[in-house]
Design a protein around this nucleic acid. Structure first.
Lengths: 217, 217
DNA sequence: TTGGCCATGTCAGCGACTGACATGAGTGAC
DNA sequence: GTCACTCATGTCAGTCGCTGACATGGCCAA
């Protein structure tokens, strides 16, 4: 069964679902390319349209023009399809921590915060996508669970990078966790606003507030 | 089918599984009492013995001497059996925030931290249980997800209570999140140590470190 | 006694996820 | 040119988490 043989009703939708690939005349392999990308888009759209729980993996696979089994080859579960891109984000932030000048290690909290700024272009390009995704996640506790797990992985990544720079264990752990709190708070303000380039500023403000609060008692 | 009729091999284990209830001669209702407690114990023990994923809900129900369906009447899912007790914890902390003297609202971060101290007796009584439970959770990402969700619910509870006292929205949100970070860090040190009464001190230390870090940059 | 309450049991079914095996275009070796 | 090998995908059967609908039978109040 080739990608073009498929004749169930949802296939047409799936193949034309994103803008690229109009000239599908020559040079077509056995299967439509970018199956995982199609699955990601199909999943996000269906989660938006009907809700996460009202969407079956079969639905997603149908819209993407693949089988359910293929979905599970790319994503470990139904939630992960919204989150696997975050590995790249974590990598960017951790790289920023590692590549800072040597003297930055003396102020681990500041180092962590500055490294978060490295993530802002990652999001600025995807403002609309980020908003849609955030709406879906906010509507479902199960998806929030997964988000928290990813954030904690980010915190651990930052903490580990700080430790590798010689920062003490407990300072590194706390700085990592605190950075994630700031990221989260800043992100929510950014999503709630309308300026795609404001993420860095939102995080900065959140951090300043946190520092002011911590100084109180 | 009454609780005493059951004759499959795991039933005996389940009925005698916890110390109480030796005199089961008279005064026995239709079913063994405290089904949810038996399920909680059975689940924690099985998760410890075989691991979370290697344990089926059927296993838990068998050991507790009930049916699988009964498990799902008490707990919304297989993870929740380890977490539903945390509602009580959140209530205690939120109550502490609400009942502080009026002038405490001026220093929301300090108020949140002091309220966390109200939770320490909750844990001191259950040190061994808490260690076993923490070990199980640490071994399974799926359980960590649920733990983070509960912690975020705690953060939201603290933030909401602070707002009810007149604290500004963003300060309340950040104080709630930060309090949870401190709770988490303190909890981990407490679990890693050997003094059941040290939780309060561990949290205090974590907070002091956080404040020192935040003051740096 | 009767009748309703309610914790539990029973049963059928859906959907998430997995392991094992089949298929067939693309690709390089000869 | 064809042979063998790869590898993304399809196919199929099965387990387990979880739910709705209905049955059962001690208990308690009228």
């Amino acid at each position: 069964m080739s990608a073009t043989d498929m004749s169930d009703d949802s296939t047409d939708v799936s193949i034309c679902h994103h803008g690229e690939f109009q000239p599908r005349i020559v040079d077509m392999g056995r299967w439509e390319p970018d199956a995982s990308g199609r699955l990601r888009r199909a999943a996000l759209d269906l989660y938006s349209e009907r809700g996460f729980e009202q969407t079956t993996v079969q639905d997603i696979a149908d819209r993407a023009g693949v089988t359910e089994r293929t979905f599970f080859r790319y994503f470990t579960d139904k939630r992960e399809v919204l989150f696997d891109g975050l590995h790249a984000l974590e990598d960017v932030i951790v790289a920023a921590v590692m590549s800072a000048p040597a003297e930055a290690s003396a102020k681990p909290m500041k180092l962590a915060m500055d490294s978060l700024q490295a993530a802002t272009p990652f999001f600025a390009e995807r403002y609309d996508y980020a908003k849609q995704r955030a709406g879906v996640i906010a509507a479902n506790p199960g998806l929030q669970e997964r988000e928290f797990l990813k954030l904690s992985s980010m915190a651990l990544g930052v903490a580990t990078a700080l430790k590798a720079r010689g920062v003490g264990d407990s300072a590194a752990d706390i700085a990592g966790d605190t950075a994630v709190v700031v990221f989260q708070q800043g992100f929510q303000r950014w999503i709630g606003g309308s300026d795609p380039d404001a993420l860095g500023r939102c995080m900065r403000e959140a951090y300043d507030e946190l520092a002011a609060l911590a100084a109180q008692g």
